[in-house]
Design a protein around this nucleic acid. Structure first.
Lengths: 230, 230
DNA sequence: CGGTTGTTTGAGGACGTTCAAGTACTGTGG
DNA sequence: CCACAGTACTTGAACGTCCTCAAACAACCG
């Protein structure tokens, strides 16, 4: 079982800089932290399960979490990776409805757990905080919009390219998780992801494992947006 | 050009019952309505364009609007249909960022236009209203989650079935728009949609044109969730 | 009534999956 | 440090689903 840990000062700093929580002043923030706790999950461990009633809002402090959806049979997929500073299941907490997704540790992680009841109360009581929640949700909303249009309109290689461009600050990109999980995030099998990487190699997408290098963003961009240049 | 119309009492009632606006008290609501206007768009007319800065928040009063995304070349798709009572582009208005989507009248429509500036101000000033906006966005967030999992995990026929089940109160379902648009919403071509309907016919999905009848929801449900029963 | 548009049906092909095998990692215990 | 097992990733071949293209059919609107 994952152990419960104390909230370190590093944790506090990260949490305080979150889109969601930074709108909260010093005092209510401190109070909320006193009611919260940190838990570590090893890679692969389930954090919360689809269908369950939300008891906590989660904030990633370290590592990476995969939001996973389930379908027919034992099939499952990844909706999004969450990195340090991201909060999740906000929609379920706000509405007080069961999760539509599961959360799974994509790497070893430290997760901040904020009691859902407290959080709902705070949203109702603190206007600034409600606005923070609104921003946080609106940003995720837009991410999903991009993902849906990519799924419907782009080929597998184009989706991969667009995803790498989204991740990368400059030329150097780090995949958030293992390739199977990235494949699921992009709506394809690991085999197809491998072939998509192969098709992108001539366009200057190099590297192995988790770290990828994009030689020319412009070339890749035009491949993903425009016609498929051979 | 679409003509500007007065806000009738019927319009007011519908707007007041919206998830977004019902949290607004009588007085601020009246004031907001005085600053808003109604515009009619004929079928096919563009309501707002991707990339533009949001000037209004829209609420569907009559007819149906398709949120459309654009991709490589001249390709485009439908993210969601919006029916009377639905508001849209809330995320763009909240964040003050350009639209990620276009809006297109799927039928003849009447749309309420609320100035974005006013609305942003109201969200900042009125706590209850901010909560309404949060709920509205959280609901759409969950819709998108379902759509993404369906796109990644279900076959075309299963997606159609799940969509029909989502639309339908009881046995009788009305498609929100023409079949090409429904096909785009489901992430397939009109030809594939036609074939998907053909594959669902043995399962008790009957009807022509816009109105569909589902004989047995249970049968259809198990087809969409579980293994593909022939 | 003809013209336009939307829907269906058919044949062929492309993309992605599945299944299977082979290769490269990662971590563990000797 | 190396051998080894277990896992992840790649590569290949066959298959299936969905798309594309083309034509026939139906519906709508002047």
């Amino acid at each position: 079982m994952p152990e419960i840990e104390v909230i370190g000062s590093e944790d506090r700093h990260l949490a305080a800089s979150t889109i969601l929580l930074k709108s909260l002043g010093g005092k209510p923030f401190d109070q909320l932290m006193r009611q919260s706790f940190v838990q570590a999950y090893p890679k692969g461990r389930l954090i919360f399960r689809l269908g369950a009633q939300p008891e906590h809002l989660h904030v990633v402090l370290r590592g990476c979490v995969a939001l996973t959806g389930h379908g027919a049979g034992d099939k499952s997929t990844v909706l999004e990776f969450l990195e340090p500073g991201d909060s999740f299941v906000l929609a379920a907490v706000v509405l007080g409805r069961p999760y539509l997704l599961s959360g799974c540790a994509a790497t070893n992680t430290r997760i901040l757990h904020i009691p859902a009841e407290r959080l709902r109360g705070l949203i109702g009581a603190n206007h600034a905080f409600a606005l923070g929640a609104l921003d946080s949700l609106a940003l995720q909303w837009r991410q999903f919009v991009s993902q849906i249009t990519d799924l419907k309109l782009k080929s597998s290689a184009q989706r991969l390219g667009a995803y790498l461009l989204m991740l990368g600050k400059d030329g150097e990109v780090r995949l958030p998780g293992e390739r199977q999980l990235v494949a699921a995030r992009l709506g394809m099998t690991p085999e197809s992801l491998s072939r998509a990487f192969a098709r992108l190699k001539p366009l200057g997408v190099l590297g192995r494992g988790q770290s990828i290098r994009i030689q020319d963003r412009g070339v890749l961009q035009s491949f993903c947006d425009g016609q498929e240049a051979e």
